[in-house]
Design a protein around this nucleic acid. Structure first.
Lengths: 216, 216
DNA sequence: TAGATTGTTAATCGATTAACAATC
DNA sequence: TAGATTGTTAATCGATTAACAATC
């Protein structure tokens, strides 16, 4: 599989392809053409073929794509079969939801446990995984070579904990804190879920609709 | 304020501007130039000026932008001062986190309450707001002309509840279910938070790093 | 074989960046 | 006034779309 200079737009479409293909597979579908996939996803067939061709040749002329094998290819590209490890920093409502209700998310990773500052939580479990003292976070990351930290703490301690994680050699932070984290000049990866930003986009669209209707 | 044919990229940058400006304001800063803002946000000054000029003229030659008034302008553009109403559908861990831990989110809206299917939850509260029977969801939306539904239920009932919401005339759905919702040919707005997609992008970056390092 | 559909090259479109006159 | 910085027009760059030869 090649992987040369892929644009961000393409990368962000890959999980959508994967999701769609798995849906189709679950429905018992076997093959699909870029034309039909485009119709179902609201993309042009050209774009779909261009996107896939960034990574290799996964189709067959006159036939299209085999859904199961294309799904595996995209999973391969996204690294879903690599055994990355993850920890949860801050098992509050949000963190608990991710571990317990979105099990399919952490199921793809080796989940090592959670870290909490509340004394009464330390030693208990979340989703069956142990909750450790957050004071031991840095040492744990160093010892276990943790790949991903899921950061679901309040905004105040976010940067401080980021410093601990980065110093301990974490490779990636999945950030839910609505704070722009500073990882210095390290190559630590940060992927943000900014709830407020997303909701504001929705509000923008509502305001836009209202203004358009008022103008008529 | 004009609002003509704004590209999606621009709209998605607006909440980031707002967040940055509010940070600067909290730090006591008064003015900023597109150059300095660009440095701090990793954008070009040109892009920043282009983005703002989509909506009007908010700066002053030789001076730059007044942080407080620019923030208000962007808030205006995003519709944050409009009194939109919201409900929560599914007050589980995730929904509770949104209402209780991310209070700043729903604070911008008139929050009317939550809807649960679990009998023992009905009549209780979440974040001080009432929890109603989900069987009454459609009627409630019709009666109260609800603008936004925050959908934090498991994937299985997601589409069915969407149908109820859309039929009742909901204007927008903030969707956390990792399901692609079908709103038919209505102009109901949908904004998705796809946790899995976001995490997969992070995994892609890790895999990419590994492959690059292995190639060396 | 004929029809369908890919992978890829070329054309188009849109978004970002650069340049600069206007002006505070 | 002189320096700084905007808003905007033009240039560049990149992403999407169209076209089509290759081929299953």
């Amino acid at each position: 599989m090649k992987r040369t200079n892929i644009s961000n737009n393409v990368i962000r479409r890959l999980p959508r392809y994967l999701r769609k293909l798995d849906d189709l597979h679950a429905k018992g579908e076997e093959r699909i053409s870029s034309g039909e996939l485009g119709r179902q996803m609201g993309l042009t067939p050209s774009q779909i073929r261009q996107d896939f061709s960034c990574f290799g040749e996964f189709g067959q002329q006159g036939y299209g794509y085999n859904i199961e094998s294309l799904s595996k290819e995209i999973g391969q590209i996204l690294g879903t079969y690599r055994d990355y490890s993850a920890i949860l920093v801050g098992p509050g409502h949000l963190g608990t939801a991710l571990v317990e209700n979105f099990k399919f998310i952490i199921d793809g990773y080796t989940f090592l446990g959670a870290f909490d500052i509340r004394p009464e939580m330390i030693g208990t479990t979340v989703g069956g995984y142990p909750i450790y003292d957050i004071a031991t976070l840095g040492d744990f990351v160093k010892e276990h070579k943790v790949d991903i930290a899921i950061l679901t703490v309040p905004r105040e301690p976010a940067q401080e904990l980021t410093d601990v994680l980065v110093d301990a050699g974490i490779r990636a932070i999945w950030n839910f804190t609505n704070v722009e984290l500073d990882v210095g000049d390290t190559d630590t990866l940060v992927e943000n879920i900014h709830f407020a930003d997303s909701l504001l986009v929705l509000t923008y669209r509502l305001a836009e609709q209202d203004d358009l209707r008022a103008a008529k």
